[in-house]
């Protein structure tokens, strides 16, 4: 359990009011229930990791928070006017260059300083030298970097990231999290989903465990480890697997 100093176990501003809050969200697709009474909240600067097996409902939850889908039950409150949203699949125009995509979305998001936002995001993603490449010519990882950059353009108070690090190499992943930490330190609440459980441990003030649309756990990574007792003491990943096993998943 030797974690770098970057590990955050205490949410910085636990006393602040949530900047994002949703209660008892229900989402059905026909007979399938994708979310069953799932609640979530995030305070300014808080990092919330959503983890769970494939089909658990992570993407559905984030889409509802982003205002993309409407819940069949429950309510979403405390939603700031602008929420940054980075969908799971790259979402931009492959026939436009990196810079053209960023500029276009900066305008569509109503950024006051388009050129500034463009420079900032090219800098952040390290895509400066690919600025004039067509998006279709980018590698999978670079596409993901562009995908994330578009979500960050408007500097929103809440950022929703759906598996942001999935296609990134370790160095890029490190850069991404450094950047997200920077945002968090500046007061941005970040809710992200991931299949990399270590990431949830290292970069999450709080963890939400979803399985089959049900919220099985909400709390800090340490609390999750305590919840499984001795059986999961080896490390966080072992604790998570054991937790799911104990709950019959």
């Amino acid at each position: 359990m030797a974690q770098p100093s970057a590990t955050v176990s205490e949410p910085g501003r636990s006393d602040a009011a949530p900047v994002l809050e949703a209660r008892d969200l229900v989402k059905r697709f026909g007979d399938r229930v994708a979310l069953r009474n799932v609640s979530i909240s995030a305070r300014p600067g808080e990092l919330v990791a959503v983890i769970g097996p494939n089909g658990a409902g992570k993407t559905t939850l984030l889409s509802i928070l982003a205002g993309i889908q409407r819940p069949d039950g429950g309510e979403v409150g405390h939603v700031p006017a602008r929420i940054g949203w980075v969908p799971q699949q790259p979402s931009f125009y492959s026939k436009l260059t990196v810079a053209e995509n960023l500029r276009l979305f900066a305008r569509l998001e109503g950024c006051a300083d388009v050129a500034g936002a463009l420079d900032r995001m090219l800098e952040q993603t390290g895509l400066h030298d690919r600025a004039d490449s067509l998006a279709s010519t980018l590698s999978g990882g670079n596409r993901q970097r562009l995908n994330i950059a578009i979500g960050l353009l408007a500097e929103p108070p809440v950022l929703l990231l759906d598996e942001p690090s999935a296609a990134l190499d370790p160095r890029q992943r490190e850069r991404l999290w450094d950047f997200i930490f920077g945002l968090s330190a500046g007061g941005t609440a970040v809710v992200y989903s991931t299949h990399n459980v270590q990431e949830a441990d290292r970069y999450g003030h709080n963890v939400i465990v979803l399985a089959d649309g049900e919220r099985l756990f909400a709390g800090s990574p340490r609390e999750l480890e305590r919840a499984v007792g001795e059986a999961g003491a080896r490390d966080f990943e072992a604790a998570f697997v054991e937790f799911l096993r104990q709950r019959g998943h």
Binding site: A66, G67, I68, W85, P87, Q89, P90, S91, F92, Y93, S94, F105, R107, L108, E109, G110, I150
Partner: peptide
């Protein structure tokens, strides 16, 4: 097809 639809309609359009 480019997955841009949702992003676009979340914006100003």
């Amino acid at each position: 097809e480019q997955n841009a639809f949702l992003r676009v309609v979340r914006g100003l359009v």
